[in-house]
Design a protein around this nucleic acid. Structure first.
Lengths: 191, 191, 191, 191
DNA sequence: CATGAATGAGAGTTCATTCAT
DNA sequence: AATGAATGAACTCTCATTCAT
């Protein structure tokens, strides 16, 4: 299948689907998405093989967007702490700015139809982060734990932090910094 | 009084529903639950007002079970660290032993039909934990953060830890203890 | 089947069923009737073979009650006009006083489950009326029409009259008398 | 524009529904209608929002058809009696030719789901009839009764007449004329 | 490519009825 | 006799998907 002619329509569908699924749940009908987008019901199936394909695509694209956001403008030559904090800040700010995408990510994560290869798909994009971490663990800055455990802890704590930043916007910065402090203190090796 | 409502049947339905929903998602049919339980389709509606009611009940019961597990045998007179570690261990061990319940809890948490009063329902049962935390924050042992942020961080890190304990059973204890160490170092105040 | 032990319960069921069916339609559940009556669901089936039997019984009893009401205190020795007016008044007053029964009668009349022998069942009770009419037709007071056409016309006009008496209670007597006048002028032979 | 909605299909559905509902009652299943029509079950819901909507539409369309039939070819310049007789004949002949529609009208009239605005919907179409009656009442030809009472009496007597015309087709004309005679004698003012 | 009518399997739920208590 | 839990067929309606236009 050649690439569909209108990337604009495809993007509109992805954007509207994100909004609809985030707010109504994954059981929202495909018709509600095309309707809100102003397209005919059948058009969705021109751009995606089916609803499952749409949701899997959504997951992949959102995760990729998140990965890019996390690693944007990463200072190459700084200390591990500053680099980690940079990533942390990128991450939580993305989450605060993209609540629908974040909410949807969580819904899809526990969805029965997420394909395994999609679930583990963006690993490549995180290679940079992987190296950084690996280095920090080996050099003794970080606690001696498997890399994926480190990454999962970062994710878990950052996403918890985002929730509170969004819920209590006035103290957004406080949560962002306290959250990082807790993460950093937890993860670094004690003498 | 005719045949009395059977708590056994109710429990069977809850148990089977937990298994089915955890594995197939919340979109699993009510018929698949009664079928697996060996009951007629209508029987589910004798014990629960509808599918929504069943799922909300499931959430409340699982959360209550978790709360009870977490706080069981809590040593009253020990140090904050030992008490916290006790809770941590109870929590992650419950999660490892009850993977279906844990998986289901996450599915329901992002489900569109969870009633707010059910979502916030077991707060009372956690009062004990609340006091413990509040005390530790005030006394300066813990970082100066809102109590609910503390609780959310505990949850996030413990659940991440459980995943790794389950995935890599051979190193289960290592993850349990490393996880706690990271949590504890993060949350306690540095001089 | 011996007569059930409690005529009181049977009557309560009939009365409650009349009310419920009149207000919610014949699709009201048997449970809603036993519930409103304060009985168990199964009790209805002790007194009636099934829902169909209940509704057929209801029809027969209401029609019998109506027949008795129509013919009560009928002056034997009066003019045909006074006798007819007496019947007319009895009829419409019964209808105004028993709106649920009247409404239900109409619902059952167009119901798919009414058994033919029940539909035509109270003919016997109307024998008296039959004779009166037959006599009046033969003697030339009434128009020369089949007796059942006469009876149907009486019914149709009286029931229309009742509707207006109920809707406009202040003019209840006017409608009763105008209605009769129209009926009487219509049915009697012109010179 | 893809396949356009087919008025033919809509009409087929209405016609089949009329037949099925008239014969089996309003509790006949939607599947029995689409089945008899040779369509898929879901097709009914493309043309009507639901069963309720179908039945309400049926009522409106049948009533409109009846109104048009009643007033067709009404001679403008004739006597009140000839005009009234014309309407009467149109009415009862429609009823005799459309027994399903007539039976259904009565079922829907006592159905719990008939929407008030639909029940009172065709009033406009009857304006012509309203004027005629109003004029005749004021000019002293008709008895001094409210217009709606007049209309209800006409309906009641005409429909009773139709029943006998249908039941005894050989004497159809006799019933039609006798019926009118009774109606006319009843409704006109006596000196 | 875009459309949206048509499809029909499958869903949750209701309910008259049965029968063990 | 009275009860009400248990039943499972039947219902209306939804919806992802197809395909004629």
């Amino acid at each position: 299948m050649a690439r569909p002619l209108s990337p604009g329509k495809r993007n509109t569908l992805l954007a509207v689907a994100t909004k609809v699924f985030a707010n109504k749940g994954l059981s929202a009908s495909t018709a509600s998405i095309t309707g809100e987008a102003g397209f005919a019901e059948g058009t969705l199936f021109v751009y995606f093989k089916g609803k499952d394909d749409l949701i899997n695509t959504l997951y992949a694209e959102i995760k990729l967007g998140l990965a890019n956001a996390m690693l944007s403008d990463l200072p190459k030559s700084n200390s591990v702490e500053l680099q980690t904090k940079h990533i942390w800040n990128n991450y939580v700010e993305w989450g605060v700015k993209n609540p629908d995408q974040l909410a949807l990510l969580h819904k899809i994560k526990v969805w029965e139809g997420l394909r395994p290869e999609v679930r583990d798909g963006t690993a490549a994009r995180f290679a940079e982060l992987h190296e950084l971490t690996e280095h920090a663990i080996k050099s003794g800055v970080f606690n001696d734990i498997p890399h994926d455990f480190f990454a999962a802890m970062l994710t878990a704590q950052a996403e918890t932090t985002m929730q509170f930043m969004r819920k209590d916007a006035a103290n957004s910065d406080m949560f962002r910094d306290k959250g990082f402090e807790i993460f950093w203190n937890g993860i670094t090796r004690k003498k």
